[in-house]
């Protein structure tokens, strides 16, 4: 039987196990990923099963971890590295943006770096400062990086498998508030290709576009809207880069209204990029300007205040209400 109930952490763990079994060149390393199994237990038991050569703790240095991954990838390995928390990836920024992202281009494709950078990502867990950043815009803004953010446990499994097989470096953003939610995962389901969005809910009246931790929030909003007689669709991007324009635009053209939902601060964000694209490509289908529901443009707030920051179903529905319904 391939279908089981798994937490997202277990789904990711299974993906790592299956990838390591399938391909000897897959190695996992980072901080506390060895005997401890990662602070979120995503790498639980990997050292035990595959040995210290294939899953190991490094000295505590993110720049070193990313740099080591680059070198190992240049010499035949497929490293999957863990940044312990979103904001602790910043010491590796130089390696990621100047080298991981650019190596293929600088070498006219002769040096490819199939590295996966796993990032426990975003908020909603009552974390103290530096533990809840939504850092996707930094990566999405960097040419050469593929950026993936699963929203379901099944996708966590499938997309991580796809990311490990991907020829280019992938930033893999794991919504940490879902690590311990349980869902059905069928590991035999064909792996979704990177770059393909999925329509999670069909809806006639307006389209909500979301990714990662915001997808369940968008679905909850759609659920609420249905009780008020409004039929909202939800598109889950799955990949931020490459962006599946076709799926998103097709939905928005049908509904004529769109709200982009993301937890990250809104200014110069992925949500802004999506809204701009919809505006440019769907202008004649739109009944109202595209709206964004995002976090505020402030440092991520502390446990006691994070509920004010995070997009909520209510805030999404307020945005939907503002989509000029009177004039139609």
């Amino acid at each position: 039987m391939t279908a089981t109930k798994l937490t997202m952490a277990q789904a990711l763990n299974t993906a790592l196990r299956d990838a390591m079994t399938a391909d000897e060149s897959v190695v996992v390393f980072g901080e506390d990923v060895g005997p401890l199994g990662g602070v979120f237990r995503v790498t639980d038991g990997l050292t035990e099963t595959f040995g210290e050569q294939r899953c190991f703790d490094t000295p505590l240095a993110e720049s070193g971890i990313a740099g080591l991954a680059i070198g190992m990838a240049m010499n035949g390995f497929r490293p999957v590295i863990e940044m312990q928390f979103d904001a602790f990836a910043y010491p590796a920024f130089e390696q990621i943006t100047s080298h991981l992202a650019k190596m293929a281009n600088r070498t006219r494709g002769r040096v490819r770096l199939p590295v996966v950078v796993r990032v426990p990502y975003a908020g909603g867990i009552g974390g103290v400062e530096h533990h809840c950043d939504s850092s996707e815009a930094y990566y999405a803004h960097t040419p050469g990086l593929t950026v993936v953010a699963p929203a379901t446990n099944a996708d966590a499994y499938g997309l991580l498998r796809a990311a490990i097989e991907h020829p280019d470096p992938v930033i893999f953003l794991e919504p940490k508030r879902h690590y311990f939610t349980r869902e059905e995962v069928d590991t035999a389901t064909p792996v979704p290709p990177i770059g393909q969005a999925v329509v999670r809910r069909e809806g006639r009246d307006a389209t909500l576009v979301a990714y990662g931790p915001s997808v369940p929030v968008a679905l909850a909003a759609a659920e609420l809207a249905a009780t008020e007689g409004r039929d909202l669709g939800v598109v889950d991007l799955r990949s931020i880069v490459p962006f599946d324009e076709e799926t998103v635009l097709a939905q928005v053209r049908r509904t004529g209204r769109a709200v982009v939902v993301a937890e990250a601060q809104g200014f110069a964000s992925v949500a802004s990029e999506i809204a701009a694209r919809i505006g440019e490509r769907c202008f004649h289908h739109l009944e109202a300007p595209v709206r964004r529901v995002t976090g505020f443009d402030i440092p991520y707030p502390p446990p006691k205040l994070e509920r004010h920051h995070l997009p909520s179903p209510d805030r999404i529905l307020d945005a939907v209400d503002a989509l000029q319904w009177d004039e139609t």
């Binding site: 505020f296 443009d297 402030i298 502390p302 006691k304 205040l305 209510d314």
Partner: peptide
């Protein structure tokens, strides 16, 4: 509970127009 309005107060030295709008939105919600 700390005052949510303070979240916007010290991000920059002076008032930032885009933050003012966001602070108003939150205040209205509250």
């Amino acid at each position: 509970e700390p005052d949510p309005a303070e979240l916007f107060a010290h991000v920059y030295a002076g008032p930032a127009p885009h933050l003012a709008a966001q602070a108003e939105l939150l205040a209205a919600e509250l």
